[in-house]
Design a protein around this nucleic acid. Structure first.
Lengths: 354, 354
DNA sequence: ACCCGGGCTGACAACGTTGTCCAGGCTCTA
DNA sequence: TAGAGCCTGGACAACGTTGTCAGCCCGGGT
């Protein structure tokens, strides 16, 4: 009898089930409560000017129908979406995940939802995501750049979508950016190795078109130059950070007639691979890595790192974003957050050859 | 002189700039191109029935005004949002981050965006997030439950929002769920310790109202019972997984007159803390942990774990979700994914007392 | 008896898009 | 040359909500 086939009501009890396919609307609630449309709107939004009795009737109707306000319509009408978009490289990366979470917390504190996506270090995909978020009319956008040309965002920013870049600066446009001090951090890390007696230090980093990678390389060179040490270009390896390439490069640097006695690794993925390679060698190799790692203190030796604070990076970027949304209209700002050297053993090993 | 000629190009120069506050709309584009509104819509959506010449005029106008379709309006009109919501415990948790990413990838393959949020293991916050996503009219919802009563989602599900639960089953409603075999995994892990000679095995887990925690405890008891071993209730510690409590409990189990010789830890956070405690002890303590850890193989001894595959969990849940969205209407399904024991050393240590 | 003010309420337009439907002009055929 | 049929383009309503504004009712002041 209650066939699912031609019975429109389907789910609930009897009563005036509205509109076959969809959900009840304020109009339906109004009809059931015997009030006007706008009165329902007032109740739903907690606006004043509704008597207790009317409000009760409306609330009963809402409960009976299972009404929930359609935010799409609300957004269309009001123009603000109370949502921010975040484009990052990889949601699953242990460096970006805390950043993601920090942005979420700030958004939440401002009553906004978070839409996010991974660019997979692909400029086209970054663009595609950012523009999709803009089409959804996010109020603001935080971008961790994969590409190096962000002019495509100019119309959106001009149209009022606040945009903050994080971890890396924007390319070819002027915009807010929140960065870590990659140059200073790398310089400090390499200087630390030099201070422990190393002269032949390898650098394993990401492709130099990535801003942070270029900065870290610059820091490496600055530290070497500052100590009056030459850099053999064969000690420098830049490229994709997949385990295979990094493994091969690490092995190349650490074997052969004149191996390096220490490695500086440019980010967490590279560090992990390098640690695995070193673990397979008979002699100890000093290592300092950029980015902290969970459990880094439990290895023997512990891994000495230049730690960034990804959560702080995200929080700072999000706070700047919301300040912009609240009207701060001064010139684009560039915030640089400090890094911190955490000595744990691997960076304090003396040079060993052979 | 390029083709754009003297026309106001990108952002904002002269020209018929419409509507002071906002962005250009299809109406503005239509006016500028000298065509009807619907023709613009057709061009934007790649619908047939527009001559090349007209299309060019429209595209020029779009470029000149910096028009981008407002997806809020589109969503309102079409009823589908091409977005899915994901409620999980913590975006930054190394277990959930890959799950998040996997859901994103599947959503992307289906042309949908992802909205997500962290419940922080709080039932109210889970509810708040899920309902906020519903108000945005996500097409589907993936929930990693924090609470144990999901009846609040019934109206939404009845109204057509497909919902899949992941990692833990729904409470008090019937719904799709994708789980790991917590019971079997824990039983196997504890049996592994027993097989290596342990008789006094401690269990450090999360609050038992969390389904996975209860299942893992059940697995522990089953393994002990299966070997005919008694369980001293002082060996079992359930509660919040903050480092302080876990540290105190681990120390309690491992010291005193009759300490346990091995630990089974109920999730990645607990494992990490337990490893730190053990590292501070003079004698070796065998350990098997639920959930894999990055670098677990590099510790000495390596950490033996029961590995789940969080990415697969997310992928499976998302695929099931989209199957539902494409119309699969059969009864709620419960998928259980296997776990895998990865022996690395810590689980193979013999019992040592003292 | 009349008017005024304030508190409630509802009718209506608007947000920007898409689906429906019809008009006009063209080509093709008889 | 007229009629049929196709192609292109536009007018209009609808999606569900909120802002504006006007109307109603009631009590109190004149």
């Amino acid at each position: 009898m209650t066939g699912t086939g031609d019975d429109p009501g389907g789910t609930a009890r009897g009563g005036p089930q509205p509109r076959y396919g969809g959900r009840p609307t304020m109009k339906d609630v109004a009809a059931r409560a015997g009030v006007g449309l706008k009165t329902v709107s007032r109740v739903v939004n907690g606006e004043p000017g509704v008597t207790q009795d009317t409000e009760r009737r409306v609330r009963d109707a809402i409960a009976a129908l299972g009404f929930r306000r359609n935010d799409s319509a609300r957004i269309l009408r009001k123009g603000r979406t109370a949502s921010v978009g975040l484009v990052l490289e990889d949601l699953a990366d242990p460096f970006y995940a805390p950043l993601n979470r920090a942005v979420e917390e700030v958004a939440r504190a401002h009553g906004a939802l978070l839409i996010n996506g991974s660019s997979a270090e692909d400029a086209d995909r970054e663009r595609e995501l950012a523009l999709a978020f803009c089409a959804r009319r996010v109020d603001g956008l935080i971008v961790i750049p994969a590409g190096d040309d962000h002019r495509y965002l100019e119309p959106e920013m001009a149209a009022g979508i606040a945009t903050v870049f994080a971890d890396r600066p924007a390319g070819r446009i002027s915009a807010d950016a929140v960065l870590s001090d990659s140059f200073g951090g790398a310089r400090e890390g390499v200087a630390h190795l030099i201070a422990h007696g190393h002269r032949r230090i390898g650098f394993l980093g990401d492709r130099p078109r990535i801003h942070t990678a270029a900065e870290r390389l610059r820091g490496y060179r600055a530290a070497m130059a500052g100590a009056g040490l030459p850099v053999d270009e064969r000690w420098v390896s830049l490229g994709p950070t997949g385990p295979e390439r990094v493994r091969a490069e690490a092995e190349r640097l650490l074997t052969g007639p004149e191996p390096v006695t220490a490695l500086f690794t440019g980010n967490n993925r590279v560090t992990v691979t390098a640690v695995r390679v070193i673990a397979g060698l008979p002699r100890p190799v000093a290592l300092v890595g950029f980015d902290d790692l969970e459990l880094a203190d439990l290895l023997s030796p512990g891994i000495t790192v230049i730690a960034q604070d990804p959560a702080r990076l995200g929080r700072t970027a999000a706070e700047l974003l919301f300040r912009r949304l609240e009207g701060a209209g001064d010139a684009p700002r560039r915030v640089e957050l400090p890094t911190r050297l955490i000595p744990r053993g691997s960076g304090e090993l003396p040079p060993v050859t052979g």
